[in-house]
């Protein structure tokens, strides 16, 4: 009963017409070849599944009150002229807490339910999966922070002069909005979100347990945003290193209206690095 000695079975009957051995009119041309259409399809699925999943609702529902209470209101109540940087600043800290919850599901859940096997055996490259999922999380972040424009609009409405309006006896100070600084701060926020979401995605790709993914992600993002910024107390070379590695200072530089190449490089390095590692983690399954 040696396999090699087994005779080949008879020829099969002819199949009904097929256009080719390829999928029915494979298409999309360059968009397909470049992977853009696949990345877009994956990102879109992630965005829509955020809006049907409880965690998506919870995050979206928490976002406005949290930012309002911790960032917008204190600024407005402070009595000094305000701009968006106060809001961005609050959000930049909040993001360290929230990003891992945005991303914990992305790969871990697919690993747990087994859908990852179906995804990775589709004609999709590993980097397309990673990029699509990251982009989905990023677009979701954009969507649920869209209310920031509302805050900005409130400020702009009172442009050009700073004034104090009284609402229910509370003196509210509303101020001049510097468009350049507003956009720079927003850009800084986007870069920080990009980096933290990429780190969260990496953590999600390492496990099939969402809670573990969120917890490990939290440890990393909190360290990056809070802990390293406190390194100024360390002896001199360590202090500089820790400050450079901390994410908040790089964001703060944007938020002060400065566009510095170094900050850009920092966020791009973290983002691309974490995405690259995620791709390697997905690839590693083959060697196990």
């Amino acid at each position: 009963m040696v396999p090699a000695a087994v005779p080949q079975p008879p020829a099969p009957p002819a199949l009904p017409e097929r256009e080719s051995d390829l999928p029915a009119s494979r298409g999309g041309g360059l968009l397909w070849e470049s992977g853009i259409s696949k990345v877009a399809a994956l990102a879109w699925r992630e965005v829509t599944s955020y809006f049907v999943s409880p965690i998506g609702y919870v995050i979206a529902a928490l976002m406005v009150p949290l930012v309002s209470v911790f960032a917008f209101l204190p600024a407005v109540l402070s009595g000094v002229p305000i701009a968006m940087d106060r809001v961005y600043g609050g959000l930049a800290y909040l993001l360290a807490f929230m990003a891992p919850f945005f991303t914990m599901r992305l790969v871990a859940e697919e690993r747990r339910t087994g859908t990852l096997e179906l995804l990775l055996t589709s004609p999709v490259r590993d980097w397309e999966v990673v990029l699509g999922k990251w982009l989905g999380a990023f677009l979701f972040f954009l969507a649920i922070t869209a209310f920031l424009f509302l805050f900005a609009a409130v400020i702009v409405y009172y442009e050009p002069t700073h004034q104090v309006v009284s609402v229910g006896g509370l003196p509210l100070s509303i101020g001049n909005l510097d468009l350049g600084a507003t956009l720079a701060g927003y850009l800084g926020l986007l870069f920080e979100a990009a980096a933290l979401l990429a780190i969260g995605l990496l953590c999600s790709s390492l496990t099939q347990n969402q809670i573990v993914a969120a917890f490990v992600g939290l440890v990393v993002t909190l360290t990056l945003v809070f802990l390293l910024g406190l390194g100024t107390f360390l002896p001199s070379p360590l202090a500089d290193i820790s400050q450079y590695l901390g994410a908040y200072d790089h964001f703060a530089s944007f938020n002060q209206g400065r566009l510095v190449a170094g900050d850009l490089v920092y966020f791009l390095t973290v983002t691309v690095g974490a995405l690259f590692l995620s791709v390697r983690v997905l690839e590693s399954r083959r060697w196990r």
Partner: peptide, 13 residues
């Protein structure tokens, strides 16, 4: 539809 997109079926098909 998602599976069609991931597997390169032409949008019109």
């Amino acid at each position: 539809r998602l599976m069609c997109r991931l597997r390169g079926v032409h949008p019109r098909r």
